[in-house]
Design a protein around this nucleic acid. Structure first.
Lengths: 210, 210
DNA sequence: TGTACATCAGTGAACGCGCGTTCACTGATGTAC
DNA sequence: TGTACATCAGTGAACGCGCGTTCACTGATGTAC
């Protein structure tokens, strides 16, 4: 239904199917809003191949999911790194951009983001992203942009806060807007400022600090 | 295996099995650390009955899960209400206790807590708990214990922060301690103070405000 | 340049399993007379 | 007090389904000679 005919890979490129399988799994996950159960047969259907073909590239379903997780944490880390990189001179602006990017990844790939943190080993997989944020808070503290006296603890709290925003809210469905309207963007900035102790965090703030 | 023989309920008490079914489902969920798939047959096994017996009390599996969710949100709300109730005279102490209780529920029932917020409709189910916290922040603001000028927004951010701590950390496995040691209790208090703007939130704090 | 063949990249059929759900039933128990 | 019976609280067997996995295979393609 999704791919009725598929050209067989040429002789040396059999490994290409490996990437196609992982991509098909990602498509299936991202098509859902809530975390659904992945099946090997479903992935094969999405990739336009027969189910046994997967065994040429992965020993079992679990390994496919593991590959999806590794790819996803790489994508998340890359996105955050890019956000930081676009604000080289301004550490606190970089921190705000990193936080927004992190949460937006969770919102854009809701089921996948949840799957990433449902699996064990996420601390290891997310370590790269965590270290970037931790270093950024340390930079803000060094430059006086943050009052943080413990970047490790503050990075941890910020991570928890962003993770909460990423998983609690359902932007497309406005689930939580029923409890009363909320400006999500301003809320996100304020959470980052308060937890990382950046800028005018004690005052009521909805825009960037002057 | 779990319940080899089970006495049949007497004539008027057929509805008792309904509660036993929900309880069996809760036991199965709580026995897992990660969210696993519930099956109707598995619930029946856990309850010590045959699978078709469930149909006398629920039209399908989804309805059983719905009942589990309703019960769970009631338990969460009751726990938070009790924590608040034990600090009647001190709004900020009540807020800290409420936050700790909320997160402890998530830690104690990890898979169930995730299931509660994976399902749609959680905003409706959690509204009671949310309103309690919102009112508490308003009380703190009125008494000068909090600098909150927008209890609705601050309650929302606090909820997100607590939800993040509840779902990100795996206390039994110390998943995140690999990234560096963290004092969870102090961290939790600090998150609550910073997001609800209570007490000495701008200063580095690990104990209750004097 | 031609051709036999090994290899590669997959496929189709089949297996046993647990699942949700249905159906006809069973046997204890309260009630009517 | 005795007894027939309706009702209640379940059970056991069976159904069709999608699943993960295995197995023997197929047919295109690059390579050796």
């Amino acid at each position: 239904m999704s791919a009725p005919k598929r050209a067989r890979n040429p002789r040396g490129d059999g490994a290409k199917l490996r990437d196609e399988i992982v991509l098909a799994a990602v498509e299936l996950i991202d098509a859902n809003d809530s975390p659904a159960t992945l099946s090997l047969r479903g992935i094969a259907r999405q990739a336009g191949i027969s189910a046994p073909s997967i065994y040429g590239h992965f020993p079992d379903l679990e390994s496919v999911i593991e590959a999806v997780l590794v790819l996803s944490f790489d994508q998340l880390g890359d996105a955050v790194a890019a956000a930081i990189g676009s604000h080289e001179a301004d550490a606190s602006a970089a921190l705000l951009a990193a936080g927004r990017t992190y949460v937006e990844f969770g919102w854009a790939h809701r089921a996948r983001y949840r799957m990433m943190f449902d699996a064990s080993g996420y601390a290891h997989n997310a370590a790269r992203t965590y270290r970037m944020v931790e270093a950024l808070i340390a930079r803000c503290a060094a430059s006086g942009e943050s009052d943080s006296s413990d970047p490790h603890l503050d990075a941890w709290m910020l991570w928890a806060g962003l993770h909460g925003v990423a998983t609690l809210e359902k932007p497309n469905r406005n689930e939580l807007q029923r409890l009363g309207p909320i400006d999500r963007v301003a809320m996100l900035d304020t959470i980052i400022r308060r937890l990382a102790r950046v800028g005018d965090y004690p005052a009521q703030s909805s825009g960037p600090a002057g």
